[in-house]
Computed example of a mutant assay.
Amino acid sequence: MARILSNGQLTVEIADVGAYGGTRFDWSGFITGVTLEQGGHTFCVPESLIPGQGTGGSGLCNEFGISRAIGYDDAAPGEWFPKFGVGLLQKQKDEPYSFVGEYPLTPFPVTEEWTTDSVTYTVEPLECRGYSMKLVKTLKLEGNRLDIFYYVENVGMKPLRLEEYIHNFVGIDQADVGPDYVLKLPGSPRVTSPESSFTENLLKVEGNHLTWTGGAERQFYCKLEGWEQAEADYYWELVHKSSGAGIRESGDFAAERIALWGDKHVISPEVFIDITILPRHSKGWRRSYQFFTC
């Protein structure tokens, strides 16, 4: 099931808390659909088009700690560790944490406050071996912009060191990946650390634009650099030339890194924020998505 935010310009579908049910992505504000009413353009697609494959991601869904699982390394098999935005997970074996792994779960309690154009989630903490975090997350519509506000409070005894990003599963009007898409970044972007020669040959950089040389026959992944010193009011912008529709992400924090993942039907620029919060301290930040037609 899903609930709706709408203001006449944007309609946003948000999955009910717990509908996702996995142990990777934040359960609160799990956005499964965005429609720009001007032109009826859509932007969100699932991670996988094949039922049962992938990790259940869809649309605009965020994750805490993909590579820094709080409390995992010092937990013994059978002990619990927190996956913020999800709940307490139980370590099964003495092996490295896997963000795609399956772990027994005790979900965090979540309360919700809805209006027609906003929703606020309060994710209450469950103390776990000195780690404890309260999350307040608000989604609000302003014209053709969706704002996401985060407020994190460290109510535990140990410091919190993790990262957060949104896995933007974007397919504009469900168009497949190909030369019709243009990804714009500040500065002089360049592709680094491609996971394969397929990725390296698929992507082409011209100035501040990245394009695709053809269709994506399989998944691709790389890091994007060269934007770090540029002064700009956005992180990335994706336009589908045939439809004239686009999406732009901005925010009020300095990105720690930007990566790019995708498949035949989906393009996912990923903007990471680095988070360190001492006990009895807090941190807030904002992400904004603007949906437009050229």
Rank of each mutant, 00 (worst) to 15 (best):
D26N: 14
A19P: 04
F30Y: 10
C222N: 03
G78T: 10
H41P: 05
K264C: 02
L203K: 02
Q53T: 14
C128D: 06
A255E: 13
G18A: 12
C44G: 09
A76W: 07
V239Y: 04
T138D: 09
V110C: 13
T55W: 05
T23M: 09
E256W: 03
G284M: 12
G207I: 03
K184M: 13
M1G: 10
I148K: 04
Y150F: 15
G29N: 04
W261E: 07
R161Y: 03
A175N: 05
K264S: 02
V45F: 06
I70K: 04
R248E: 01
L49W: 07
E102I: 13
E142G: 00
E63L: 12
V100C: 09
V119P: 11
N208G: 02
G171A: 03
S243W: 08
Y121S: 11
S28G: 13
K241W: 01
G8E: 12
E142H: 02
V152F: 02
G284A: 14
Q9M: 05
P96W: 11
G215E: 06
V266D: 01
G87A: 05
T199W: 07
G171W: 08
G156S: 11
L160C: 12
Q53E: 15
P186W: 02
L210I: 15
T138A: 03
W285E: 12
I277L: 11
V239L: 14
I70H: 00
I14F: 06
I31D: 06
R24I: 07
V205I: 04
Q229P: 06
E153K: 03
T138Q: 12
L139M: 13
C222F: 08
I66D: 13
F81H: 01
L260S: 11
S268A: 15
L160W: 01
G156N: 00
